[in-house]
C-alpha cells in the first residue's frame, strides 16, 4: 500500500520537473552561460579591433589590477553613490510619511486607492522615456528655462544651463529616481506598517501618546527589518543606475564626468569597440558588490523569523 503511494509521489515530482524545464533552459542559456563567460573573459585581453577580434590572450588578473589602480572605478562609484543618495533621501522620507498616512486607519483617508495608483504611475513610464522628457524640459531652449525667463529669474537669452553644472545635473538624476521610485517604496513600507499589531497603537493612544511619538517609538522600530530591506534593495537598484543619466547626458556623463555611473562605465567599454576583457572584469566587481549586499538582505530577512 505504502509502496503505491510512494510511486505516486515520485510521478508527480516528475511532472513538476518537466514543467520547470523552460525556466532552467532559459536560465542556462540566457543567464548562466553569459555569467560564466563573463567571469572567464575577465581574465583575458580580448577586444574588438575594427570588425575583427583581438585575442583572447590570457592576461591573468591584469584587467583587475588596471581597474583598481586607476582612479575611475572609485570616481564612478562615488558618482553613483552621490546620485543615489540625492534621490534616496527624499524618497524614503516621503514614502515613510505617505506610508504612515495610508496605513493609519484613524485618518479615514478618502480614495486612498486612487492616490496609491497615482504615486505608482511614474514607475510605469520607461526610464529612458522619462529621461528624454527631462532632457527636453530642462534643455537650454526648453520650457523650464522659458518659464524662468518669463518670471525674470534668469535674464532673457541667457538660460540657466542645467546640464553644465555638477550639482544641477546630479540633482536632476536624483530627482528623477526619486519620482520613479517613491511610489514603489511607499507600497512596501505601507505593507510593513499594516503588519504591525493594531493593539500597540491602541495602547499608545490610551496612554496619551502623540502621533509623532507613535511614529518614532512604535512604527519605526517595528518597521526596521522592512526598512533595511528597502534601503539595501534600493542601493542595489542604485548601483545599476544607467538609463536615466545615460540618456540625460547623451552617454557622455557631463559635466566633467560627474554623472557617469558604474554601469555607464561598463557601457563605455562595450559600446564602440567592445572590450570583453575589461567589461568582464568590471561586471565581476559589480557582481560581487551586489552579491554582498544581497547577502545582507537575506541575513536581515531571515533574522526576523527568530
Amino acid at each position: 500500500m505504502s509502496q503505491v503511494k510512494k510511486g505516486k509521489v515520485v510521478s508527480f515530482n516528475k511532472w513538476g520537473y518537466i514543467f520547470l524545464i523552460p525556466f532552467f533552459v532559459t536560465y542556462l542559456f540566457f543567464q548562466l552561460v553569459p555569467l560564466v563567460t563573463t567571469f572567464y573573459y575577465g581574465f583575458f585581453e580580448y577586444y574588438e579591433k575594427g570588425i575583427k577580434d583581438y585575442g583572447p590572450y590570457f592576461y591573468g588578473i591584469k584587467n583587475y589590477i588596471a581597474l583598481f589602480s586607476g582612479k575611475l572605478l572609485l570616481k564612478y562609484s562615488l558618482n553613483t553613490l552621490i546620485m543615489w543618495i540625492i534621490g534616496f533621501i527624499p524618497q524614503i522620507a516621503v514614502s515613510l510619511l505617505l506610508g504612515a498616512w495610508f496605513s493609519d486607519a484613524r485618518l479615514r483617508l478618502k480614495a486612498a486607492a486612487v492616490y496609491k495608483v497615482i504615486i505608482y504611475l511614474p514607475n510605469l513610464i520607461m526610464a529612458s522615456a522619462f529621461s528624454m522628457l527631462f532632457f527636453t524640459l530642462f534643455d537650454d531652449n526648453g520650457p523650464v528655462n522659458g518659464l524662468l525667463m518669463a518670471l525674470n529669474i534668469v535674464p532673457e537669452g541667457e538660460p540657466f544651463r542645467f546640464f553644465r553644472y555638477t550639482l544641477s545635473s546630479r540633482s536632476l538624476v536624483g530627482f528623477m529616481n526619486f519620482l520613479m521610485w517613491f511610489g514603489n517604496t511607499t507600497i512596501l513600507l505601507m505593507a510593513g506598517m499594516l503588519g504591525i499589531d493594531q493593539s500597540l497603537y491602541e495602547a499608545a493612544e490610551v496612554d496619551g501618546a502623540t502621533p509623532t511619538q507613535v511614529f518614532w517609538r512604535i512604527t519605526l522600530p517595528l518597521l526596521r527589518p522592512i526598512l533595511v530591506y528597502v534601503v539595501i534593495t534600493s542601493l542595489i537598484g542604485g548601483l545599476q543606475m544607467f538609463d536615466v543619466p545615460q540618456i540625460l547626458t547623451n552617454g557622455a556623463g557631463t559635466p566633467a564626468d560627474s554623472t557617469t555611473t558604474l554601469i555607464m562605465f561598463l557601457n563605455n567599454n562595450i559600446s564602440g569597440n567592445v572590450n570583453y576583457g575589461v567589461g568582464g572584469a568590471l561586471s565581476v566587481v559589480l557582481f560581487i558588490i551586489t552579491g554582498v549586499l544581497s547577502m545582507i538582505v537575506y541575513k536581515v530577512s531571515t533574522q526576523k523569523e527568530d
Binding site: Y47, E48, K49, Y54, N268, N269, N273, N275
Partner: peptide
C-alpha cells in the same frame, strides 16, 4: 586626459 580616457574605452588597445 578625459578625451584620452574616453577614446581608449571606445578603441581598446
Amino acid at each position: 586626459a578625459q578625451f584620452e580616457q574616453k577614446v581608449k574605452e571606445k578603441v581598446p588597445g
